[in-house]
């Protein structure tokens, strides 16, 4: 029975939250313009995380499976996009805008189609037959799939970083005082927001979306009501794959460097973002991604009393643990049968 008094752990949590607010406040007061600049950097990085996190959350929502291969599908599709840009179109920093736009559009289509196909294949080969197996079997298969996709990327692209020229300029599009928003950041944000809106609309309003929600709540009942469960799950994997493909290209265009194992660490962060926001919750995945991006950049970019890069991972995962302790369903709550 609740005592009505706050626990020691709760008080500690409030104390740390207060500390963070004070720290952010002091940094803002000391240099508000730089604070906003760092905020934009974090927001952009967070948007990239969010796009990857959406794929995790979609699959978890329907299968309650953490598809560890998702991060690696993201990396492989980014590498494939680099081949399209460099080997097929031969784009350079001197290429005309027309060629760059066509090359990016083709790379986007190729990356999304290939990533979708790969994701659907992974589900068909690896996960479908384990749907009624213990959770652990599916989890281990997901980890195995992650290594397989990673090694395929390694075999094709070798261990070297694949670099592309900066095709989206980092010159300022908007400047107020010393606060500047660059074209490449605007590009990332302008792509993430419509993707989230379109995805939310699709899940809520369309036939496929309704089928996904129904399958996520009760697979057997959905099948009895005439929903093709296998097709719906494949569709979800295809959707998650196409998000990974888009995120791969976006990452490549923004950071301009990628390697076969880029998806491992990023996948973990994106998965963390999905859990932070409330896994299975689309808006939660975006919120989680953006929060982690901001935490990372504030920790590395602010000047006053900043723990610095040595502590970034500890802080990100420490906050995750705190959220799970105080709010196990994530910030916005799960939207899965388990979360209800």
């Amino acid at each position: 029975m609740p005592s009505g008094r706050p626990s020691l752990v709760g008080l500690l949590g409030l104390f740390f939250l207060l500390l963070i607010i004070v720290w952010l406040g002091v940094n803002f007061v000391k240099d508000p313009q730089e604070f906003i600049n760092v905020f934009f950097v974090g927001l952009t990085r967070g948007a990239v995380y969010a796009l990857i996190a959406l794929g995790y959350t979609l699959v978890y929502g329907i299968l309650q499976l953490i598809n560890f291969a998702h991060g690696d599908v993201f990396a492989l599709s980014g590498l494939i996009a680099s081949s399209v840009l460099l080997s097929v179109f031969g784009v350079t920093t001197d290429s005309g805008a027309g060629l760059v736009i066509v090359a990016i559009a083709v790379a986007l289509i190729v990356a999304m189609v290939l990533a979708s196909t790969l994701n659907v294949t992974i589900e068909f080969v690896g996960y479908r037959r384990l749907r009624h197996a213990p959770r652990l079997a599916a989890l281990i298969t997901a980890i195995g799939m992650s290594f397989i996709v990673q090694n395929i990327a390694l075999a094709i692209y070798d261990v070297d970083y694949q670099s592309i020229p900066r095709l989206i300029p980092n010159s300022s599009v908007l400047t107020i005082g010393e606060v500047a928003l660059q074209w490449n950041k605007l590009f990332v944000l302008a792509l993430t927001i419509p993707v989230l809106l379109a995805l939310t609309w699709m899940v809520r309003e369309t036939r496929h979306g309704k089928a996904m929600r129904a399958t996520s709540q009760d697979r057997d009942a959905s099948a009895m009501m005439g929903i093709d469960v296998n097709r719906t799950i494949s569709f979800t994997f295809a959707l998650a794959g196409s998000l990974a493909g888009a995120a791969g290209l976006l990452f490549l265009l923004y950071f301009t460097t990628m390697r076969y194992d880029t998806g491992f660490e990023l996948g973990l962060i994106a998965f963390t973002a999905a859990v932070l926001g409330g896994i299975g919750n689309l808006t939660g995945a975006v919120l989680g991604g953006i929060l982690i991006g901001l935490i990372q950049e504030f920790n590395e970019g602010l000047a006053w009393a900043t723990p610095g890069g040595d502590w970034t991972r500890s802080i990100v995962f420490g906050i995750l643990i705190a959220i799970l302790v105080f709010r196990p369903s994530g910030l916005l709550g799960e939207q899965t049968p388990e979360g209800e």
Partner: peptide, 17 residues
């Protein structure tokens, strides 16, 4: 005097610092 994380995606924030 700081470290960069070799696994990080980018270092824009660090460079701002």
């Amino acid at each position: 005097f700081e470290a960069w994380d070799p696994k990080a995606a980018g270092y824009e924030g660090l460079m701002r610092q």
